[in-house]
Structure formats: C-alpha cells, structure tokens
C-alpha cells in the first residue's frame, strides 16, 4: 500500500477525483493527524497497561527480586526451571488442567442442552429463554456467595438434603476432591447464561429446510442432532469453547471466595498461585515467571481462536 496518499478504499470515480481536484488538496493528506488524535489515546493506554507490563514481567521473571519487587540478581531461566521441577507448581498446573477441562466440557454440554430445549415451538418458551440466560447477570462474588451457602457444612442445602435422606455428609469445601467439584459446578453455573445465549443464536440460524429434508428421509432426531445440528453450529461451538477455556484459565474470584486455593492447595489454580507468590509472599520474580507461563498458555488458545475468526470473516 502506498504511504500517505493512497487511493480511497472504494473505486475512485471521475467525479470524486474532480471533487478532490476542485478542493485543491488530497483528502488523505490530513489522515495522519486524524489518526494520531483518534488512535493516540488507545495506543497510550495499551502501551502503558498491556505492552509495557508484559515486557516488564518477562524481564522480572529472569531475576530474583527484593520485597518491593525490584530485581536484584539475574538468574536467567532459573525461576522457570525451579517452577517446572517443583511438585507444588506442577500440582497447580494439574489442578488447573482438571478444572479447565471440567468447566469447558460441562459448560458446552449443558449449554447445548439448554439451547436445544428452547428452540422448539411451545407456548411460553420465551420465558424459559429468559431464565436460561439469567446467570449472565450474576457477578463472581454473588455466584460465590450463593454457592458457598449451598455447599456450606451443616446449614447448607446439600448437607441438609443429605441429612434428610440419611446419606453420608460430604465435606464439599474441605475435602480436596469435592472442593474441586464444588468450584467447577459453581463456575459452570455462572458460565451457562452466556453460553446458552450464543448457542441458542447459532441453533436458530440452522436452516429449517435441513431438518425437513432429514425428516423426509426418515432420519431419527438423534441422528439429526449429530449429523445436522452439531456440524452446523460447530464454528460457534468452537468459538464458545475457546472463550470458556480462556476464561477458565483466568479464574480467580470464585477460588478466592470459596476455597482460597485450598484445601491442601487442591484448588490452587494458576492465577491464584501468581497472586499468592506476588502479593502474599512477595516473591515477584517467581510470580512473574508464573505469569509468563500463564500468558503463553492463554496466547496459544487465543491464537487458535483468531485462526477461526479469520476463517469466519473471509467467509
């Protein structure tokens, strides 16, 4: 592309040239001033709060730091090596992996179920659509409080139900395995409103003629779901999966409120580990290395998503 005075995006016409000539200047000469004014604020903010901190985090991750976060001794990749060989950090990675997979699979499965349940034509179906999208209006603290009560020992709903049926009581938040289940369930519930809305939108876009044709050919509903519905919504499904996945990698609030990473670090997910190392123990170098690992993982999945977006845009 030529610099400074390239042609307009749409095909230039004799008329527009004439107009420009009549004005006596090229309309694009001013563009760089407009660009500076229009884009400047965004560049400044992104530079200070997104670019610089990434570079700085990378830099800090190569150092030992003092208690106010200033780098002291250059140690190269040592922070990374000690992280990846530490049983505690590997446990945090494993816990994160387990959590992310659990959240993504359950969110998508239930999201499809809810969306599929509301594409049918029934009187009052609009009400169910509104209800199913409701958790989109729930913030992380509210979700944590509602579920804390459900999972809380003795007074909580689940323990009461267990007591009523004389079932063994489960220590939802103090048993390492069940605490993970508890935060997965809470996260999935919180995700469902958004996932439902997106998938419902996708299902509505599937041309009804496809189902009519399948009906005529005698395909069962189950067959139609696997061979018509799923392929048709697969781009949206992929989009939803990556959004959910990236969100799950960034989870912090629910963990902080419900388990504080416990019990026994069973729910000590990646972001919580960064927070603990940086802001509770003041180990900024290590926390920076953990941040870089987190950023790499998320960047990888965001790239995947871009690839998909690109495809869709050219389509």
């Amino acid at each position: 592309m030529e610099a400074g005075h390239s042609v307009p995006k749409s095909q230039p016409t004799v008329k527009s040239f004439a107009k420009t000539a009549a004005k006596g200047f090229n309309v694009h000469v001013n563009d760089k001033y407009y660009a500076a004014a229009f884009l400047g604020p965004s560049l400044l903010i992104l530079g200070v709060f997104v670019f610089y901190p990434m570079v700085r985090t990378l830099y800090l991750s190569l150092f030992l730091t003092n208690n106010v976060g200033r780098p002291t001794v250059f140690v190269g990749l040592k922070n990374y090596v000690s992280l990846l060989t530490s049983a505690a950090y590997r446990a945090s990675l494993t816990a994160t992996g387990f959590y992310v997979v659990g959240v993504v699979v359950l969110t998508l499965a239930l999201g499809i179920l809810l969306a599929q349940a509301t594409v049918q034509k029934l009187a009052g179906i609009q009400w169910f659509r509104t209800i199913f999208s409701a958790t989109m209006g729930v913030s992380v603290s509210v979700a944590a409080i509602f579920w804390l009560f459900i999972f809380s020992p003795s007074v909580g709903l689940l323990d009461q139900i267990a007591a009523f049926f004389h079932l063994p009581v489960i220590n939802w938040l103090t048993d390492p395995g069940w605490a993970m289940v508890a935060i997965i369930v809470s996260t999935v519930w919180m995700n469902l409103g958004f996932t439902f809305l997106i998938l419902f939108g996708a299902l509505q876009m599937v041309p009804p003629t496809l189902y009519e044709a399948a009906d005529i050919e005698g395909a069962s509903k189950r067959y139609q779901f696997w061979h018509v519905t799923l392929p048709m919504i697969s781009p949206t499904l992929f989009f939803t999966a990556t959004v959910t996945l990236i969100g799950a990698f960034k989870s912090f609030g629910l963990i902080d409120l419900m388990t504080a990473g416990g019990p026994n670090n069973a729910t000590n997910l990646m972001v919580y580990q960064v927070y603990k190392d940086a802001f509770l123990t003041g180990n900024y170098g290590m926390a920076s290395a953990e941040s870089i690992i987190l950023a790499l993982v998320i960047a990888l999945f965001t790239l995947l998503q871009f690839k998909f977006l690109e495809k869709r845009v050219t389509y």
Binding site: L46, V50, K250, L294, A295
Partner: peptide, 19 residues
C-alpha cells in the same frame, strides 16, 4: 493491537500495580 488481545491482564498485575 490485535496481538494485545492475547495478553491476559491477570498475567500483568505485578508491573501494573507498580505503575
């Protein structure tokens, strides 16, 4: 700018706090 979409804010809190 597109590239910044890949950078999670959660991984940048340490320098941002200093800033």
């Amino acid at each position: 700018i597109l590239a910044t979409m890949m950078l999670p804010f959660e991984a940048e809190v340490i320098p941002n706090f200093a800033t």
